[in-house]
Amino acid sequence: MKQVACAEFFDVSQAAVSKAKKRIDLAVSKDVALFSAPKMINAKISLADQLDALGKQCRELLEMVHVVLHGDHASQEYRDCQTKLRRLAGTNRDLGGFLIKLQAELRKQLEFVFKMQSEIYSLKKVEEFQSVVLEEIQRAAPEVQQRIVSRLTEINAARSALDFGIGAGDKSNF
């Protein structure tokens, strides 16, 4: 539903709907960090494969640009690279601009990979912490460990529900 329809349905302002959506997004993020970290870490992320393929294509194009700029003009490799790059560089046939765009794309990819690796590292830290704490609690009192997991699941489920100020004084910072 759109924000306007949600506001009408719950008989609240659009601002209240917007605030609730932000709280839900935060609750979902926390839920992912706490309970889905092992799944996300162990899953094969096709995005990484796609990023790898894109990086490979960019590197191949950079190699072609290098051949055209510095290669033997009489070689077949030079002619092939020049033909391909002319098609790719567009009507202006500006290889310098094309090279700059390729390098910018590679920089963006590197930044994205760094962010992905940082997120994975953070998820691993959360998973390790959660695992150690729950194992130690289970050793001390298995029933307490089960109650903790159950309560955390309930808290996250409750936070995922729309809350338009109901129980606003009862917020914890879990």
Score class of each variant (00 low, 15 high):
residue 76 Q to L: 07
residue 162 L to M: 15
residue 160 S to F: 11
residue 113 V to E: 07
residue 47 L to I: 06
residue 80 D to M: 06
residue 138 Q to N: 10
residue 148 I to N: 06
residue 148 I to H: 06
residue 95 L to A: 04
residue 10 F to Q: 01
residue 38 P to V: 02
residue 13 S to F: 01
residue 166 I to P: 14
residue 79 R to A: 03
residue 74 A to S: 09
residue 7 A to M: 04
residue 64 M to W: 02
residue 162 L to T: 12
residue 8 E to P: 11
residue 139 R to K: 14
residue 122 S to P: 00
residue 136 E to I: 08
residue 133 V to D: 13
residue 54 L to M: 09
residue 56 K to S: 11
residue 133 V to T: 12
residue 18 S to I: 04
residue 84 K to V: 04
residue 17 V to M: 00
residue 109 Q to S: 07
residue 160 S to E: 15
residue 70 H to S: 05
residue 40 M to L: 08
residue 40 M to A: 02
residue 84 K to I: 05
residue 161 A to D: 15
residue 170 D to F: 14
residue 9 F to A: 04
residue 105 E to H: 08
residue 32 V to C: 04
residue 174 F to W: 15
residue 6 C to E: 09
residue 145 Q to E: 10
residue 121 Y to L: 15
residue 39 K to L: 08
residue 22 K to L: 11
residue 63 E to V: 09
residue 60 E to F: 06
residue 90 G to A: 01
residue 6 C to V: 13
residue 145 Q to G: 10
residue 154 E to N: 14
residue 171 K to A: 14
residue 130 Q to S: 09
residue 16 A to C: 02
residue 99 L to P: 00
residue 92 N to P: 05
residue 127 E to I: 08
residue 79 R to M: 04
residue 173 N to E: 15
residue 1 M to G: 11
residue 22 K to I: 09
residue 131 S to W: 06
residue 112 F to Q: 05
residue 93 R to G: 10
residue 107 R to A: 12
residue 7 A to F: 01
residue 6 C to Q: 07
residue 77 E to L: 07
residue 36 S to K: 01
residue 35 F to H: 07
residue 64 M to Y: 03
residue 93 R to M: 07
residue 111 E to M: 12
residue 75 S to R: 03
residue 9 F to S: 05
residue 40 M to G: 00
